[in-house]
Simulated scan of single mutants.
Amino acid sequence: MQKDLISRLKKELYNLVSIPSHRDCDRINRYIKNRLSFISFNDQFVGKRNLYNIYSISPEKPVLINTHVDTVPPISMKNPFSPVEKNGRIYGRGACDTKGLIASLIIALEDFKKNNPEKDIPVSIAFTVDEEENTALGSERLVEVLDGITSAVVLEPTYGKVCTKQMGSYEFSLRIKIPSAHGSEFERFKNPSKEAFKIISMIEKELKRPVNIIKFISGWDYYAVPEKAQLLCEFKVFENELISEIEAKLSNVIDRFEYEVELEVEDFEEFLSFKKGNLYNLVCRSYEKAIGEKPKEGIMPSWTDASNFHKAGLECVIFGFCSLQDCHTDRENISVEDLHLMYQVLYNLFSILNQP
């Protein structure tokens, strides 16, 4: 029976990864609805590229299980939609973020229904889109149909930690403009690329934290010192930090330079501490029953759809096995063991919720 379960989990993940969902999520949504045909889903269009959420929500089932079906593009990953298993790990685009978690969810729901044919699935379910984009319209729109829902388990890779907090982030663009010069006279002039790194270093010192450079544009094909450098950057926002305090420190750095420097905020997400109540206890009980020990708590270092649910007043838990650091890379994978552990926790959660 154990071998059969593992085989089913792997097959489910292979099927999910083989369906590209970085531009159009229609195929993946139709596949999920077909696999979970014993659940009646509604479509909710989000007003972007014909994208739509699918959901089965009832106030009689106040606990919501949610995850996103969209992935980042293949980027540098070779054969991203042809999953392969190596040393107990399954590789492919979305294998961890979040199709491995979806595979475990599908099989857990299927088995719960098979073992309890007279029972209804005890949770509301929603698969959202657009999470990997800056707009995140899927969860933003889903909030409109969450009447009666009091809590949400958001499936994301958390290394198996139960996260009731989410790190904030400050994303900004930086533009530096300095008079150009003939390339042979470069040592007499400031190079905007070098100055950009100097500014980033000063920001890191002022804020006492590292800055991630997401995009860097500078230089040209002519023999001249470039006159511009443009960067897109971000850094993490910690608990109890105010945007006014952060921006005062940024201004303190920028004002030190005589040449033209522009810093503009692109996005700001404050550090979030979710409500910690019945849902947290339920997830911990399910974990302990499956694993045999209490789970570790953690802070989700990235933005998730839980942000929109939290703002709508829901208690949120972000949870999922597998490694976040490998997501969005050509190393993206999930171990077969994590697939199995995720299945066990979810099945136990359904069983606990099914009790009178």
Rank of each mutant, 00 (worst) to 15 (best):
S7G: 02
S7C: 07
L9K: 03
L9D: 07
L13I: 10
H22M: 04
H22F: 15
H22W: 15
C25H: 13
D26N: 13
N29T: 15
K33W: 12
S40Y: 15
V46T: 11
K48V: 09
N50M: 09
N50W: 09
Y55M: 14
S56K: 13
I57K: 09
E60F: 08
D70E: 14
S76I: 14
S76Y: 08
M77G: 04
M77L: 09
P80V: 14
S82N: 11
P83V: 02
P83D: 09
N87S: 15
Y91W: 04
R93H: 05
A103S: 08
S104Y: 07
L105P: 01
L109N: 07
L109P: 10
K114P: 04
N116I: 08
E131Q: 06
E140Q: 11
E140C: 07
V143W: 02
V143Q: 02
E144I: 11
V145K: 12
L146V: 14
D147K: 15
A152F: 06
P157K: 08
G160K: 15
V162W: 06
T164D: 02
K165D: 02
Q166T: 11
Y170V: 04
S173N: 12
K177S: 09
A181K: 01
G183E: 00
F186K: 11
F186P: 02
E187M: 06
F189N: 06
P192S: 00
A196S: 12
F197E: 01
I203N: 01
I203Q: 00
F216N: 01
Y223G: 07
Y223T: 12
A224P: 03
E227P: 01
A229F: 01
E234V: 04
F235P: 04
K236S: 06
K236M: 03
V253N: 01
R256S: 06
F257Q: 00
V261P: 00
E262M: 04
E262H: 03
D267F: 08
N281F: 13
Y287N: 09
E293F: 07
E293Y: 07
P295S: 04
I299W: 04
P301T: 07
G313K: 08
E315I: 14
F319C: 05
F319G: 08
G320E: 09
R331Q: 10
H340E: 14
S351R: 10
L353D: 06
L353T: 09
L353E: 03
